[in-house]
Design a protein around this nucleic acid. Structure first.
Lengths: 184, 184
DNA sequence: CCAATGTGATTAGGCAGCTAACTATTACCT
DNA sequence: AGGTAATAGTTAGCTGCCTAATCACATTGG
């Protein structure tokens, strides 16, 4: 995720060691006070931890893709293709995956080299191309599915069904808040 | 041709675009059934939406950095440097930021070119270098701080203080779940 | 005291995302 | 018709991240 993805947190409040963990409330507070701002450190912490957590889960998923020689982007493209009956134009893929057409070109290049998709000129549009999932591509997806979804499930296994519902609601509200900032 | 409903695969946590929203429960269910898996679609949805939300918030923060000519990585490095008194070795930066030393070298190159940091040989270790925050770098951070933290706060403004606490707890538990998968 | 090993920083090469620019084709508009 | 605009796909060049390899210096053990 993406990568790329944003690593752990937007601000570097990593204080000492043990590398790894997400920033603490103290660190957020220190940062805010350092600039003399009237911002709620807890709110900052929520945003930063959300970014961190999303990246972490994304990386955990990516680790599985890597075992099959795929990246997140390539997996997404393959899966979207299958979901659509195995055929789709690059432009449409870009739209549905939310990436640029140029990125799709690059992903298709790699997937074609690996024999997971094929390109064929469109029959309806002289400009167009169609990406086709090969039998090998479909098989790969089948091979990955069980463990992939199982891993996703395992990651949230610490939450009850009710908690998951609450979590989804809170997530949606933060997304709305960020969308308000983004949309200009 | 009719606008066919685009089905989005589970890992297709698309950004906004066209329809914009993250995947739905229906889509998750369809995917899981397609492979005949016994996985809870809601759990899958939680993981996928978390990835999506984290990326969204990260992008919203990044948009602000871009106004000052910084990327997320460069901002984090700068902020970490200031947080540490303005001086730190590249190795330490890599450790604290959670990226490789090679990445730090690249980030420092860009920041040095922009006059935001300077490199100086370490006085204690003949092999070592120290990255130093310049006055200009510190000023840039000061200029960015208010709006940066304000934006983070705004994104979570839809949650009450209690909800934020719940959210942090749920986030932490999902992170623990993903860490269990990652660590092996 | 010197060889082996370890560590700091960089370089080289790869991937995935982006924008901008380009070619080819199709569609639109008088 | 014919010129202009929009669209499909690609290419080129940027960034940020990675790993692996390299070079320089440090430390340590026999």
């Amino acid at each position: 995720m993406t990568a790329k993805v944003i690593s752990r947190h937007i601000m570097c409040m990593t204080r000492d060691d043990t590398d790894g963990e997400a920033p603490t409330l103290d660190q957020a507070r220190r940062q805010v006070e350092h600039y003399g701002l009237e911002v709620d450190p807890q709110a900052v912490l929520v945003a930063v931890r959300l970014i961190s957590a999303g990246a972490r889960v994304g990386r955990a998923a990516e680790a599985h893709f890597a075992k099959f020689g795929l990246s997140t982007g390539r997996y997404r493209l393959l899966a979207d293709l299958e979901d659509h009956g195995g055929e789709k134009s690059p432009s449409r893929l870009a739209l549905d995956l939310g990436v640029s057409r140029a990125t799709v070109t690059g992903l298709l290049d790699g997937l074609e080299r690996a024999g997971l998709i094929a390109r064929r000129p469109s029959t309806e549009d002289g400009r167009g191309t169609v990406a086709i999932l090969t039998a090998r591509g479909a098989q790969l997806l089948r091979d990955m599915a069980s463990e992939h979804f199982g891993r996703l499930e395992a990651m949230v296994s610490g939450l009850s069904v009710e908690e998951r519902a609450v979590f989804l609601d809170l997530l949606a509200r933060v997304v709305r808040g960020s969308a308000a900032l983004t949309a200009d």
